[in-house]
Amino acid sequence: MSPTPAFLGKDLVGLERLSADQLRTILDTAEHFKEISERRIKKVPVLRHKTIVNLFFEASTRTRISFEFAEKRLSADTVNIVAAGSSLQKGETLVDTARNLEAMRIDMVVMRHGSSGAAQFLADRIPSNVINAGDGRHEHPTQGLLDLLTIRDRMGRIEGLKVCIVGDILHSRVARSNIYGLLTLGAEVAVCGPPTLMPPAATELGVRVFTRVEEAIEWADVLNVLRLQLERMEAGYVPSLREYNRIWGVSTARLEAAKRDLVVLHPGPMNRGVEIDSDVADGPHSVILDQVTNGVAVRMAVLYLLAGGQPEKAEAAKQGGET
């Protein structure tokens, strides 16, 4: 691979510090890689000499599998480590785990961790590339990127769009990555949800805050509906899931009251009948499965670029050429 400095730097910890140019290039690169997943033989030799560890301290199905498909379709060697039953549960510190992996000569770590800042912590301490697959309530950059790609595909642009993120903004790493990416690419961003689930400094991030979902729907071109976790109700942020659905749920009736056709995203897994009604999830507004498809392409693009791949050589790399 090219010894020149990687386009993205060593790591992808979050979208907060990425430039518009970097974001656009990742999305453009992902467009090149989309086609691989549509082939009969879904494999190209782009990362055939790379070893990647998927290190998941928190349960994850969609993100972990999406990364694994992306890695395998690019021909990387991959190892999955999940917390249950591993040394991660035997009191080994994060930095020791990382150093041990490093000692086995790996190239990249994809990490999901329950603590905000864990990805940065790891990135600062090991020479391998680190990709944040979600750290606490901080960021989930590849989810943010796949949301951007899905919006751009559907709407043809991001600049000037009005995007509202609905739900538990306080605890959401998806919300933060979306806010940073969308603002950098020139969208107007709003958040909507119960005041108890709003970060205290939301407006200082540069977003509008709606309390009523009807107002958000009236305003927005795109809704990104977040999962309401059951724990939030147990912790007393909202009194009941039924009440949440009544007041903040995204339903067909509410969408039909809006004057334009909205596009609805959801990062999954969905609680049907809580934050989103089934007829919305399965209906014409929904791009939820496109998000899942795009997730693989976006992750391929990120892996390629972090491995030192040049954006303009992505097409050639796919054909087996040097990157």
Partner: peptide
């Protein structure tokens, strides 16, 4: 501390 830095870092704050 509860505020902008905590919100950005995704850390729970104390007011």
């Amino acid at each position: 501390n509860e505020g902008l830095v905590a919100t950005r870092l995704g850390l729970a704050g104390k007011p």
